[in-house]
Design a protein around this nucleic acid. Structure first.
Length: 138
DNA sequence: GCCAACGTTGGC
DNA sequence: GCCAACGTTGGC
């Protein structure tokens, strides 16, 4: 089992959109690193859904329900897409600021390179973020 | 809206 | 194959 974080501008494709669709096709990735990460996703891997540009926070949890296949939106080139299904909203969104402020998360890709739209998250980091998202007391 | 960082492309 | 320039993206 692996863990991932994907980010999207909410005005383009938000977690709410994914919830509405039940199963969303994660396509349009045009970055080799991100693509390689997509291809490494396995069925049932867990994925944080992060809103970039607006919100700047991880708002929901999704899982992989379809492994990498050729991106239907790619006219040319060798690109991939995966299918994601929403699991649930996080009780408390985890902001980029909070992630950067958390010493245990200094090394995650989001803090270093927010431009990468699909990135792996270590099991430890996943657990830390989960804890931040679920704690009810500030 | 502006500035900075990263990735990609083109020239040498 | 390496280096520089340009364009795009994301955070503030």
């Amino acid at each position: 089992m692996s863990y991932w974080l994907v980010n999207s501008e909410p005005e383009e494709y938000s977690f709410a959109d994914l919830v509405a669709e039940k199963v969303g096709c994660w396509d349009g990735v045009r970055n080799y690193q991100a693509r390689n990460n997509l291809r490494a996703m396995k069925m049932d891997d867990l994925v944080f859904f992060y809103h970039s540009r607006q919100g700047l926070e991880s708002v929901g949890l999704a899982k992989v329900v379809g492994e990498a296949y050729p991106d239907p939106t790619a006219k040319k080139g060798d690109w991939s897409a995966v299918d994601l299904a929403p699991l649930r909203l996080l009780k408390k969104p985890v902001s980029l600021k909070a992630i950067k402020a958390e010493s245990a998360l200094q090394d995650i890709a989001l803090a270093k390179n927010p431009r990468l739209s699909v990135m792996p998250i270590s099991e430890e980091a996943f657990a830390v973020i989960m804890e931040m998202a679920e704690e009810t007391t500030a």
